[in-house]
Deep mutational scan, measured.
Amino acid sequence: FSITQFVRNLGLEHLMDIFEREQITLRVLVEMGHKELKEIGINAYGHREKLIKGVERLI
């Protein structure tokens, strides 16, 4: 299971460039909250919320 699959499953594949540029893996994403996601350029609250909720389902 990769970050690419995870992001695609959430319908947020347009954010993949950010994850690749910042070298974010699923392991790193698990540790990130709204503040960190915003810092790397994910400005939409809804997108950040989707990512965080998606990660919570993985754990």
Results as ranks from 00 to 15, higher is better:
residue 1 F to M: 14
residue 2 S to P: 08
residue 2 S to D: 14
residue 2 S to E: 13
residue 2 S to A: 09
residue 2 S to Y: 08
residue 2 S to K: 08
residue 2 S to C: 13
residue 3 I to L: 14
residue 3 I to Q: 01
residue 3 I to F: 10
residue 3 I to N: 00
residue 4 T to F: 14
residue 4 T to N: 12
residue 5 Q to R: 08
residue 6 F to C: 04
residue 6 F to L: 11
residue 6 F to Y: 05
residue 6 F to Q: 00
residue 6 F to K: 01
residue 7 V to S: 03
residue 7 V to F: 06
residue 7 V to W: 03
residue 7 V to L: 15
residue 7 V to M: 13
residue 7 V to Q: 00
residue 7 V to R: 00
residue 7 V to G: 00
residue 7 V to H: 00
residue 7 V to D: 00
residue 8 R to E: 10
residue 8 R to S: 14
residue 8 R to G: 09
residue 9 N to E: 15
residue 9 N to R: 12
residue 9 N to Q: 14
residue 9 N to F: 10
residue 10 L to S: 03
residue 10 L to I: 09
residue 10 L to T: 03
residue 11 G to V: 02
residue 11 G to Q: 08
residue 11 G to D: 07
residue 11 G to W: 02
residue 11 G to E: 07
residue 11 G to R: 07
residue 11 G to C: 07
residue 11 G to A: 06
residue 12 L to V: 04
residue 12 L to S: 00
residue 12 L to R: 01
residue 12 L to M: 07
residue 13 E to N: 09
residue 14 H to F: 15
residue 14 H to T: 10
residue 14 H to D: 12
residue 14 H to E: 14
residue 14 H to V: 12
residue 15 L to G: 02
residue 15 L to W: 04
residue 15 L to C: 05
residue 15 L to Y: 10
residue 16 M to L: 14
residue 16 M to K: 08
residue 16 M to G: 08
residue 16 M to H: 06
residue 17 D to K: 12
residue 18 I to F: 06
residue 18 I to Q: 04
residue 18 I to Y: 05
residue 18 I to W: 04
residue 18 I to R: 05
residue 19 F to K: 00
residue 19 F to E: 00
residue 19 F to S: 00
residue 20 E to R: 11
residue 20 E to K: 10
residue 20 E to M: 11
residue 20 E to G: 06
residue 20 E to D: 12
residue 21 R to H: 07
residue 21 R to A: 09
residue 22 E to W: 04
residue 22 E to G: 07
residue 23 Q to R: 14
residue 23 Q to D: 09
residue 23 Q to S: 12
residue 23 Q to W: 05
residue 24 I to A: 02
residue 24 I to Q: 00
residue 24 I to H: 02
residue 24 I to T: 05
residue 25 T to P: 06
residue 25 T to I: 04
residue 25 T to G: 06
residue 26 L to M: 13
residue 26 L to Q: 02
residue 27 R to G: 12
residue 27 R to T: 11
residue 27 R to W: 11
residue 27 R to C: 15
residue 28 V to N: 13
residue 28 V to C: 11
residue 28 V to P: 02
residue 28 V to H: 14
residue 28 V to Q: 15
residue 28 V to L: 13
residue 28 V to Y: 07
residue 28 V to S: 13
residue 29 L to G: 03
residue 29 L to V: 04
residue 30 V to Y: 11
residue 30 V to W: 07
residue 31 E to M: 13
residue 31 E to P: 08
residue 32 M to I: 04
residue 32 M to A: 05
residue 32 M to Q: 01
residue 32 M to D: 00
residue 32 M to E: 01
residue 33 G to S: 07
residue 33 G to F: 03
residue 34 H to I: 02
residue 34 H to P: 04
residue 34 H to M: 03
residue 34 H to L: 04
residue 34 H to S: 04
residue 35 K to M: 08
residue 35 K to H: 09
residue 36 E to A: 05
residue 36 E to P: 03
residue 36 E to N: 04
residue 37 L to H: 01
residue 37 L to S: 00
residue 38 K to I: 11
residue 38 K to Q: 12
residue 39 E to L: 10
residue 39 E to A: 14
residue 39 E to S: 12
residue 39 E to N: 10
residue 40 I to P: 01
residue 40 I to L: 11
residue 40 I to E: 00
residue 40 I to R: 04
residue 40 I to A: 06
residue 41 G to M: 04
residue 41 G to E: 03
residue 41 G to D: 02
residue 41 G to T: 03
residue 41 G to A: 04
residue 41 G to C: 04
residue 42 I to T: 01
residue 42 I to Q: 03
residue 43 N to Q: 13
residue 43 N to G: 13
residue 43 N to K: 14
residue 44 A to T: 11
residue 44 A to Q: 15
residue 45 Y to K: 12
residue 45 Y to T: 07
residue 45 Y to C: 07
residue 46 G to H: 15
residue 46 G to D: 15
residue 46 G to I: 15
residue 46 G to W: 15
residue 46 G to L: 12
residue 47 H to N: 13
residue 47 H to Y: 07
residue 48 R to G: 01
residue 48 R to K: 01
residue 48 R to D: 01
residue 48 R to S: 05
residue 49 E to M: 12
residue 49 E to Q: 13
residue 49 E to S: 09
residue 49 E to C: 10
residue 50 K to A: 14
residue 50 K to F: 06
residue 50 K to G: 05
residue 50 K to E: 09
residue 50 K to W: 07
residue 50 K to Y: 05
residue 51 L to P: 01
residue 51 L to Q: 00
residue 51 L to E: 00
residue 51 L to R: 00
residue 51 L to Y: 03
residue 51 L to N: 00
residue 51 L to H: 10
residue 51 L to I: 15
residue 52 I to F: 02
residue 52 I to V: 06
residue 53 K to N: 09
residue 53 K to R: 13
residue 53 K to A: 10
residue 53 K to G: 06
residue 53 K to E: 09
residue 54 G to C: 08
residue 54 G to H: 06
residue 54 G to Q: 05
residue 54 G to K: 04
residue 54 G to R: 04
residue 54 G to Y: 06
residue 55 V to G: 06
residue 55 V to L: 11
residue 55 V to D: 00
residue 55 V to H: 03
residue 56 E to Y: 07
residue 56 E to I: 11
residue 56 E to H: 12
residue 57 R to T: 11
residue 57 R to Q: 13
residue 57 R to H: 12
residue 57 R to C: 11
residue 58 L to K: 03
residue 58 L to F: 13
residue 58 L to Y: 14
residue 58 L to Q: 05
residue 59 I to Q: 11
residue 59 I to N: 10
residue 59 I to T: 11
residue 59 I to D: 05
residue 59 I to P: 13
residue 59 I to F: 13
